[in-house]
């Protein structure tokens, strides 16, 4: 996970860029799900954005139906699990001639440690166009408050 370094203010900018480019080479044409050179497991890619009221998670899982996704939060760890089924069932693949396959089928899992500021009881999730969106509300007391100061 080189991305961590990239954001961490690593001082060697040229090296950093080279590394990013090498990772891009692998990312461009290899199957989706691989997040870098050394990560080849079926862990779908995700984005996490923190807003004032909530933590938003978006996860790419094309071809997966909502009923095949299990979502839970245990000990403040969000876990996305599921099964990506081959349309038409597994039997089909014996009958057909496969020419090329970059996609994968089977189970996937991704876990995400949540910050303390979120409330695990206030979660909504939606599946749309192959993207899973999860919204976890923040605890009321942790929301940033704006305190106006009047300058005399």
């Amino acid at each position: 996970m080189f991305r961590m370094h990239r954001r961490g203010g690593w001082p060697f900018n040229d090296l950093e860029r080279l590394q990013a480019q090498i990772n891009d080479l692998f990312e461009d044409d290899l199957s989706y799900g691989a997040t870098g050179l050394f990560d080849r497991s079926s862990s779908p890619r995700l984005d996490v954005v923190e807003t004032d009221d909530a933590l938003l998670v978006a996860c790419d899982i094309p071809g997966v139906e909502a009923k095949d996704i299990e979502l839970d939060i245990v000990n403040n760890v969000l876990s996305i699990r599921g099964e990506k089924r081959r349309p038409g069932g597994d039997d089909d693949k014996e009958k057909v001639k496969n020419y090329r396959r970059e996609t994968w089928y089977g189970s996937f899992q991704r876990t995400l440690a949540l910050p303390d500021s979120v409330d695990p009881d206030k979660v909504t999730a939606e599946m749309k166009n192959g993207v899973l969106s999860v919204q976890i509300a923040k605890r009321e007391e942790r929301k940033p408050k704006r305190i106006g100061i009047k300058v005399k």
Binding site: D28, S31, P62, V96, Y99, R100, R101, T103, G130, V131
Partner: peptide, 24 residues
Amino acid sequence: RIYPAYEVWEGDDAIHLRLEMPGL
């Protein structure tokens, strides 16, 4: 540019092409 992952196979009287383009 994102090159979507795909698979190609041949059925009885057609070629099938499946591309994964999440978010579209």
